[in-house]
Design a protein around this nucleic acid. Structure first.
Lengths: 351, 351
DNA sequence: TTGTAGGCGTTATCAA
DNA sequence: TTGATAACGCCTACAA
C-alpha cells in the first residue's frame, strides 16, 4: 500500500523501506551525520546504491537553507578573459559539490537585472558578478535580500562587497612604462568606456606613467570592450598626421581589432609601431611577432573568487575582503627587442 | 498569529494576506492562469510589487514537475568554439526564462559523470551535451531516468538522441579540396583523437578529398584538441625531410599551436606553407596573413540546440531529430591568392 | 471564479 | 542511536 508505482526517481522513502529504517536515518546516513551506527549506515548505503538513489536538491533546498548553488553573472561570456576565469570558478565549485548557474548579461543592464532576479528565485547561496553598471543600488538590493555578492574584475563604486581583481592602475602603468623606457615619446592608449572600473583605472595608470616621465600630451582613444572598439580606435589613431610610435591596448578583444587595423594599414610591428596588449590569451604566442602583454592570473581570479564567496556564505559577519592580485608584464617581440625566452607557451601547457 | 516574523524572503502566503485573497488565487494570478478575475489579478500584482515577492523555484520545482532549468555540459568551456555556442544557448534560454546550469568536464569522463549526477539531482528538464566519451551506456542511463539529452557537435555512437552538428565530413573535404585545387600535391592533415566523432569525421573528409583527386599518400598527425596538440603535430610535420606545402588544421586551438610552430621554424605563410584552419575565431582576421578557415555557425548551433531540447521536453514521444548545419569556407590569405573581400569582420560586428 | 487542503522529498525537532 | 512528524513554499484537485 505504501509503494509508489511512480516511474520517476527514487525517493528517500523508498530507500528507507529497502534498508528497513526510517527516512530520518537515511537522511542522517547520507549527510554524514555522526549520530548513526555503523551497521545502519551500511544498510543505507547499500540500499542507496542498489536503487540508484539521488537526493532531490529542490526538496533539500526547500527544507534546509544551505544551498550548494551559486550564480555567476558575467558581462560577456565570449570574452576569453571571462572564459578563463569561468573555468577556474567552475573547477573550484565542482570540487566542493556546488552547482553553477550561469548568466550572461552581454553588457546589458536589463538582462543583468533579469538574471539577478532569477538567481534569487533559484535561491542561490551567493553570486559572483562582473557588473555592467557602476551604480551600487541594484546590487545592494540583492544583498539586502540576503544573497551575498562578490565583485570580480570590475569593482562597483560605493558597493561594499568582497572583491577580487588585479591592480589595474599599476598594470597599465607597467605597460606604459615599458614602452616609455624603450624610448618611445609618443605612446597612445586604447581603452574601454570609463563607466567600467577596469577601463577607468587602466587609463589612470597610463596617465600616471606619462606624468612620471614628465610627459603631458596624452593620446587616448576609447571604445567599447569589443573587437570593433579596438579596430575603430586604432583606425582613428592611424588616420592622424603623425601616428604614435607605440600603442598600449588595454583589453584583449580590442587588441585583436587594433591588430587588424594595423595590418590593413600595411604597418609593421614593431618597426613602424610598437604594440602591447592586455591579457595573455592563447593567440598571443601565435601572432607574428608574438605579442608583449600584461597578463592577469585569470584562472586564479576564479578560484579565489569562489573561496571568498564561500567564506562569506559561511560567515556572513566577517569583515569584507578586497583581494588584489598582481599582474605581470610578459615581454615578447611586439615592442621590439628580444623575447625574454620561453614566455607563455608553458603556461598553455599547464591547464 | 499567522504572521511569520522571518527576515527571509516573502512567501506566497504573505502576498495572499496583503492582497486579501487565498494563496491559490495568487498562484493562479502569477502563473497567468485564465481563471481569475481582472480585479483580483490586479490586487495580487500590486501586492507582489509592493512586497517584492519572488517565487521560490525550489518549491515550485518540487511541486510542479515542469522545471525551467537545463544543464549544459561541455568538454572544454575555454575553447572559443564552445564559448560561442554557449552564448547562443544562454541567450535562447534566458528568453524563455530557463535557468542554465553549467558543467565543464574538461575532457575527463569522471568529472563528466559527476556533473551528470548532479544535474539529475538538481532536477534539470534536459541536458545539452558535448560528450567526452564515445560510448552510449553512461548517457543512456540518464535518459532512462527521464532526463532527455541533446548531443551537440560531438555525436555519440549508438546513442539515439536529438543532435545538432555540422557536416564534418563535407567541411573537411571542402577545406582539403580548396588546397588541392590551389595546386598543392602534398596536403597534410592535423586532427584530434579519433575517439571523438568530429575528429573522426573530419579525417574521413580529408581522405575523401584526397581520393577524389586520385591521391593515396596521406599525411596525418593527430593530437589532443588543444593548442599543444597542434604545436606538436606541426613540429612533427616540419621535422620531416620534405615538409608538406599545405596543411589543414581541423580544430581552432590546434591551429593556434600550429601557427606557433610555423613561426618558430621561420616559415612564411602562404609562401612556404599554406594553412587553413577550423572555426572562424576572433583572431582569424587579426593574423598576418588573415586566416582562411572553415566556419561553423556556432551561435546558431546553440540556439537550435535549445529549440530541439525544449521540443523534446514538451513532446517526449516525438521522433528524434538530427539537425546538420552547413559550414562554410571563408577564403582569406593564408593559402595564397587574394581574399574574397570583406570576409569576417562584419560577423564580429553583428553579435 | 475562488478557497481549502493535501502533498511534492527533505531535514530538523522532539520523544522514545 | 533511532523514529515519528512537522514544516519548507508552492501548485492543484476538489469543493463551494
Amino acid at each position: 500500500m505504501k509503494k509508489k508505482s511512480s516511474s520517476a526517481s527514487i525517493t528517500i522513502q523508498q530507500v528507507a523501506e529497502a534498508a528497513g529504517v526510517s527516512t530520518a536515518t537515511v537522511s542522517r546516513a547520507i549527510n554524514k551525520s555522526d549520530a548513526v551506527s555503523e551497521e545502519l549506515r551500511n544498510q543505507v548505503i547499500q540500499a542507496v546504491q542498489k536503487l540508484g538513489y539521488k537526493p532531490n536538491r529542490s526538496a533539500r533546498n526547500l527544507r534546509a537553507h544551505n544551498v550548494r548553488k551559486v550564480g555567476v553573472l558575467f558581462a560577456d561570456v565570449q570574452n576569453p578573459f571571462f572564459t578563463s576565469v569561468l573555468a577556474g570558478i567552475e573547477a573550484s565549485l565542482q570540487k566542493v559539490d556546488y552547482v553553477l548557474l550561469l548568466g550572461n548579461s552581454n553588457e546589458d543592464r536589463h538582462i543583468e537585472q533579469e538574471h539577478l532576479k532569477v538567481f534569487q528565485e533559484e535561491g542561490v547561496a551567493g553570486i559572483i558578478l562582473a557588473a555592467v553598471t557602476d551604480s551600487a543600488a541594484p546590487y545592494q538590493k540583492v544583498i539586502r535580500n540576503g544573497v551575498p555578492i562578490l565583485a570580480l574584475d570590475r569593482l562597483v563604486e560605493r558597493l561594499k562587497v568582497d572583491s577580487v581583481s588585479i591592480n589595474n592602475v599599476e598594470a597599465a602603468a607597467l605597460a606604459t612604462e615599458h614602452l616609455l623606457n624603450l624610448g618611445h615619446k609618443d605612446v597612445a592608449f586604447i581603452g574601454g568606456p570609463v563607466s567600467i572600473s577596469t577601463a577607468r583605472l587602466r587609463l589612470e595608470g597610463y596617465r600616471k606613467a606619462l606624468l612620471n616621465h614628465g610627459l603631458v600630451n596624452e593620446r587616448v582613444e576609447l571604445g567599447n570592450f569589443r573587437q570593433v572598439g579596438g579596430y575603430r580606435a586604432m583606425k582613428a589613431l592611424l588616420s592622424t598626421k603623425l601616428y604614435p610610435s607605440a600603442v598600449f591596448v588595454s583589453n584583449n578583444l580590442m587588441t585583436l581589432g587594433a591588430l587588424q587595423a594595423i595590418h590593413e594599414a600595411g604597418l609593421n610591428i614593431p618597426k613602424d609601431i610598437a604594440l602591447i596588449g592586455f591579457d595573455d590569451m592563447p593567440w598571443a604566442t601565435s601572432l607574428q611577432p608574438p605579442l608583449t602583454v600584461i597578463a592577469q592570473p585569470t584562472y586564479n581570479l576564479g578560484t579565489i573568487a569562489v573561496r571568498l564567496l564561500l567564506d562569506r556564505i559561511l560567515n556572513p559577519a566577517n569583515p569584507i575582503q578586497q583581494v588584489i592580485l598582481e599582474s605581470q608584464l610578459i615581454v615578447r617581440e611586439s615592442c621590439g627587442g628580444k623575447s625574454t625566452g620561453n614566455s607563455g607557451f608553458e603556461r598553455s601547457l599547464n591547464h
